[in-house]
Design a protein around this nucleic acid. Structure first.
Lengths: 151, 151
DNA sequence: AGGGCAGGTCTAATATAGAGACTTAGGTTC
DNA sequence: GAACCTAAGTCTCTATATTAGACCTGCCCT
């Protein structure tokens, strides 16, 4: 059971229990010799990479083709675009449809599993959007203060 | 305004509007010559790196010291641990307290800003935990099917 | 005197990402 | 009718990020 720090924060039950579950995985892992396989780690490694969330958010409003995605996320390289799409497809988050036009076009769209990820992810995005000023302020403050005080 | 795909999905308002806002940023960016600075990208680059979310989740139940964190996240290198902690501190998500014991111990704990990230992040973790079997099934299916059909 | 610990930093080796040339086949421009 | 464009990639080479692990500083224990 978690210590009191988290209680009374008004957090919803799913969130609280997620933290607790994760916490348990971690202590199991710290104790055992071999690494315990934690599903959270597994999934975090997947969607927590550099482009996956961005890709899913970009596909949220409508399916898009390879080049459209490239234009939408302008600083992704073709190589990483291909690879990220492939990985997301592999995990069942998006689907890939080839249309035999000339030149062939390929459409990517969210699979139901990917759509189910939209809400939790959008809530994170919403946080990011609302807290952006705070982060920036903290960053400016930190950068201003560093150099003055040695560590 | 977003096309209909998203309507009637039972998604909450904050989530819907987050997707819409993000979508608008992206089209602005696609149109203008210089990249439009999107706060979502900015924050996603920060917490979407390899270790940050894991760190925040690990600090959720209680504050921890450097070595405790190392033991909890066993496959992080000291270098990345230091760097991740420093970056999170810079962004105001965690705080760092040095206790002048001998040898000095350093405690890291979530700042209020970091705590506010806990709920959206925990909801994502909860998703990860619940959908893990689906992802695994999709992965096995994909891996089984590939090699049989050329792309 | 030797060894350990805490919380790091530094360097060298390795893994991952990016830039950009090349592909295939048909359509467009000059 | 030759040169060039597009779509969706792949391939190679280079740049950047990450890891492993040696080393550092003070103080405590034996």
């Amino acid at each position: 059971m978690l210590p009191g720090q988290l209680r009374g924060t008004g957090m919803n039950t799913a969130a609280l229990s997620a933290i607790e579950r994760f916490s348990r995985y971690q202590s199991d892992d710290a104790q055992s010799a071999a690494p315990v396989h934690c599903p959270v780690r597994d999934v975090l490694d997947r969607i927590g990479d550099k482009w996956s969330m961005l890709m899913i958010m970009t596909l949220a409003p409508r399916p898009q083709r390879f080049s459209e995605l490239r234009r939408a996320i302008r600083d992704i390289s073709k190589r990483m675009l291909t690879q990220t799409l492939r990985d997301l497809e592999r995990d069942g988050l998006i689907t890939r449809h080839v249309f035999p036009t000339k030149p062939p076009s390929v459409e990517y769209r969210l699979a139901p599993l990917g759509e189910s990820l939209l809400e939790p992810m959008a809530n994170l995005i919403d946080w990011a959007d609302r807290r952006y000023p705070d982060i920036h302020a903290a960053r400016a403050c930190f950068d201003g203060a560093s150099g003055e005080v040695p560590r």
